[in-house]
């Protein structure tokens, strides 16, 4: 059971809140990080820890778009399509990815590596077009750049093009 496996982490999370239910999102995040999605078993386990009924966990899970109730690809490509990114051609980014991976939004590659989603604003409006892949942001993407990202991910599971601590624009070096 997940909560046995991460006993210390679960206890630390519970200790942050005076009311148990507050630990729900953190525990769901934990479960999803472990399994890649939120399974029914995880929801039941979490319900038990928090003195909730499974439907109470379920209703919360389904409110938030980051939780998946079914397994998805190893890398979840989420392209922002909101206006600010759309102004700098995020729709093309979707096309580039579709072309390269042969999948449309909502689909997963046959090897189970990539799932493509089109999502709303990710808080990166000045550096579009951009996408989030699992925990990481990739910004100011071009067709070439996104190609490299996908290749690297497929090959070594990570890519150095991911954003570091955010600063935009980088200040000009004082001369």
């Amino acid at each position: 059971m997940l909560l046995v496996k991460f006993k210390d982490e679960v206890e630390e999370i519970l200790s942050r809140y005076p009311v148990k239910r507050s630990a729900l999102l953190p525990l769901l995040n934990l479960a999803q990080r472990e399994e890649g999605f939120v399974s029914e078993l995880a929801m039941r386990d979490i319900a038990k820890v928090l003195d909730l009924t499974p439907p109470q966990v379920f209703e919360t899970v389904t409110f938030y778009t980051m939780f998946h109730l079914k397994p998805i690809g190893k890398f979840h490509l989420q392209v922002c399509k909101s206006l600010m990114c759309a102004l700098v051609r995020s729709d093309e980014l979707v096309t580039w990815i579709s072309k390269k991976l042969n999948i449309g939004p909502g689909q997963t590659t046959v090897d189970g590596n990539f799932t493509l989603s089109v999502v709303e604003c990710l808080g990166s409006c000045g550096t579009g077009p951009m996408m989030q892949v699992n925990d990481d942001y990739y910004e100011q993407l071009t067709e070439e750049k996104v190609g490299r990202v996908l290749d690297d991910l497929a090959r070594v599971g990570e890519c150095s093009l991911k954003s570091g601590p955010f600063m935009f624009p980088m200040p000009l070096a004082k001369s």
């Binding site: 206006l83 600010m84 709303e120 604003c121 808080g123 955010f166």
Partner: peptide
């Protein structure tokens, strides 16, 4: 929560 489309300042304040 910085989710208002067009806004990305809090991210910088937090990360930097």
């Amino acid at each position: 929560d910085e989710s208002e489309p067009g806004t990305f300042k809090d991210r910088q304040l937090m990360e930097r």
